[in-house]
Amino acid sequence: MIPFVDLRTQYLSIKDEIDHAVLKVLDSTQFVLGQEVKAFEEEFAAYCNSDYALAVNTGTSALHLALLAAGIGPGDEVITVPFTFVATVAAICYAGATPVFVDIDPVSYTIDVTKIEQAITSKTKAILPVHLYGQPADMEPIMEIARRYGLTVIEDAAQAHRAEYKGQRIGSIGDIGCFSFYPGKNLGAYGEGGAVVTSNPEYARTIKMLRDWGQEERYHHVLKGYNYRMDGIQGAILRVKLRYLDQWTEARRTHAAHYDQLLADSGVKTPTVMPYSHHVYHVYAVRTKQREMLQARLNEQGIQTGIHYPIPVHLQPAYADLGYKLGDFPNSELVANEVLSLPMYAELTTEQVNTVAKTLKNILQGAKVE
């Protein structure tokens, strides 16, 4: 069996450090926020080339608080994409705002920057690009449009830890960057977690209060806030894992290059790395019109895969009230019908990559798998 993600192998490789970090928190009894979370915030802010990082309980909470800090609320519109995990859109709705969708570029799978301007109205307050699968959106034109129209840019970097756009760390380019530390992410906690990064001190102050019941000091509630605090154990674990993120990222990129080479003549379309992009391959998604057959056959051969994401948000029943219909975003719909994510994690072996590629090619070529 080749798993889609192998969290156990990663844990075993750093077990002593993780166990020590967790026991240190247990001994300190600082179970919510505390010194380990504070130290992680300082280290992660520096890692992202931002002045501040605010640790929260999920990536969704990070997006929600970023929107609130930017003053987004009822009556406002936020431009984003329908081809993303649903949390991107849910957070906009949590803030009371309206998501306005722009289709994706069919090559990068990130927001089509040529379509943003026509989606702007007098109600538009922010652009929320998604750095999908570990590939950055084309930030330069996004920032130019945002500055021209006076819009806030909030980066959904939930899948893009360590990614870069023209040499700049993702999360530090827009006004605010939002990360998820869900266990399967490139930088994953052992439970839920997220963070907001920014170099704007007012945003940082507001988010710090909002995540902890709106308190500026204990029992002094300046804002109507939320219980979005990070656990101390998750902060300690993330500190350990952050030290390995560069190494793990390069391993992912090596595996992706190997897949690229082996699958060049396979009949599937491999990911395209944009010229501005330092891709970190949270997901290695190929495209094929034979997805269902290929996924089923790979599973029969002991190779797990995933689909990110089979139904664009504009076609989800939960968001039917937004008024979109089939055909409104053809690139998102086409890609959603064809993407298939192959096993991708730092601990993959060359032999496993070879096996996945060989099996995939044999299936598509109709050959008997050995």
Score class of each variant (00 low, 15 high):
residue 230 M to F: 01
residue 108 S to W: 09
residue 28 S to V: 03
residue 282 H to W: 08
residue 362 N to S: 15
residue 297 R to Q: 14
residue 264 A to I: 08
residue 182 Y to S: 14
residue 48 C to W: 08
residue 224 K to R: 09
residue 113 V to H: 08
residue 304 Q to H: 11
residue 273 V to P: 07
residue 32 V to A: 14
residue 199 S to M: 06
residue 231 D to W: 04
residue 137 A to E: 01
residue 219 Y to E: 12
residue 111 I to Q: 07
residue 166 K to G: 08
residue 188 G to A: 07
residue 16 D to F: 03
residue 321 D to L: 09
residue 175 D to M: 05
residue 98 T to E: 10
residue 228 Y to K: 01
residue 247 Q to T: 05
residue 238 L to H: 02
residue 94 Y to E: 15
residue 131 H to A: 10
residue 176 I to H: 04
residue 189 A to S: 11
residue 190 Y to K: 10
residue 24 K to W: 04
residue 8 R to P: 00
residue 110 T to A: 05
residue 164 E to T: 15
residue 57 N to S: 14
residue 151 L to K: 08
residue 229 R to Y: 05
residue 229 R to M: 13
residue 76 D to H: 11
residue 168 Q to K: 14
residue 162 R to K: 12
residue 242 L to G: 05
residue 210 L to D: 10
residue 47 Y to W: 11
residue 238 L to T: 00
residue 74 P to N: 07
residue 214 G to D: 06
residue 2 I to V: 15
residue 35 Q to E: 15
residue 202 E to W: 01
residue 162 R to M: 07
residue 160 A to I: 03
residue 265 D to R: 05
residue 198 T to M: 07
residue 294 L to T: 11
residue 165 Y to D: 00
residue 190 Y to R: 13
residue 196 V to A: 05
residue 99 P to V: 00
residue 355 T to D: 05
residue 14 I to E: 15
residue 205 R to W: 07
residue 72 I to L: 13
